[in-house]
Amino acid sequence: MDLAVFLALLAATLRLATPLILGSLAGIWSERSGVINIAIEGIMLSGAFAGYVIAEKTATVIGWSLGPLPGNLLAGSVAACLTGIFLGLLHAFWSSKFRTDQIISGTAINILALGLTAYLLRLIYDVGGSPKLADTLPALLSWTVAGKHGEIAIQFTPIMLAALILAVISHFGLFHTPWGLRTQAVGEHPMTVRTLGMSVEGIRYCNLALSGAIAGLAGAFLTLEQIGQFNEGMTSGKGFIALAVMIFGRWKPLLALAAALFFGLADAAQVLLQTRGISVPAEFLEMLPYLLTIVALLGLVGRTRPPAAIGQS
């Protein structure tokens, strides 16, 4: 393998890993505080949709830009995060106020997201797909190498960079700040936290808002940075795969980052094999990420232990 192919694989790995990095961080912040967040898939999808619609509708309205970043795409990213916060809080509200089983309320949010985005897509654009945005979030850093078949560039786009930075911040935040320690305490021994006079629900609301914002950003990555378009059900299970990544990474941000990159690599290799015209049917290659997810869940790579109080209201 020459350097150019290797770099192309690396670039694809980063691109495919980004939603998984963000999704698993969203899962970590939620589950570390004791709330199972199966709704990440739906939040991602809603974020992708809200981000796209805002960016598309404000494209002609917003003239300013922040350096190389067009204002409408930034507005879209913010809208994606806000949508995520709203749904994260909805999940927290349902599971703490009404003591709904967290998996059931998460599933309801997933169905709601899938239905509502499809409904609104038809309502606003009158089609199953949406018009392509004029431009997507451009690379902030890029590294170009001349290869045999032309130049290969690794591009670091804004949300991709944000994902990498957020993983580091989350590690620091979770293990070295009072907030992170409180989060862990709520996830392990909520009674203790309550006895100390702190609000378990309050801490969980904040964490779910954070979790939602990160998952929403993952959605914005898909529409505003990668594709520039919204399609029905476009997350296609990435939110669930991110949860497997989180478990694979043992609920630790940096380990999850590594796990997400591993998943990204597997996906990138799969795409590379497809474009090289390998004789295995495409459907089998497309199964790989899902199979890998199941393997990751088997715990073959050492014992995994979720936070003790997970799922309890």
């Binding site: 349902w94 009404f98 309320s105 309801a108 169905i111 709601l112 239905g115 499809a118 409904y119 038809r122």
Partner: peptide, 25 residues
């Protein structure tokens, strides 16, 4: 009206039935 509205209704039903369990509790 796009028939996707049905999925929205379904999600609302799940949320409301689930909330009711808590309210009744």
């Amino acid at each position: 009206v796009s028939s996707q509205i049905i999925s929205v209704l379904q999600a609302l039903v799940i949320l409301l039935v689930a909330a009711e369990a808590g309210i009744r509790h």
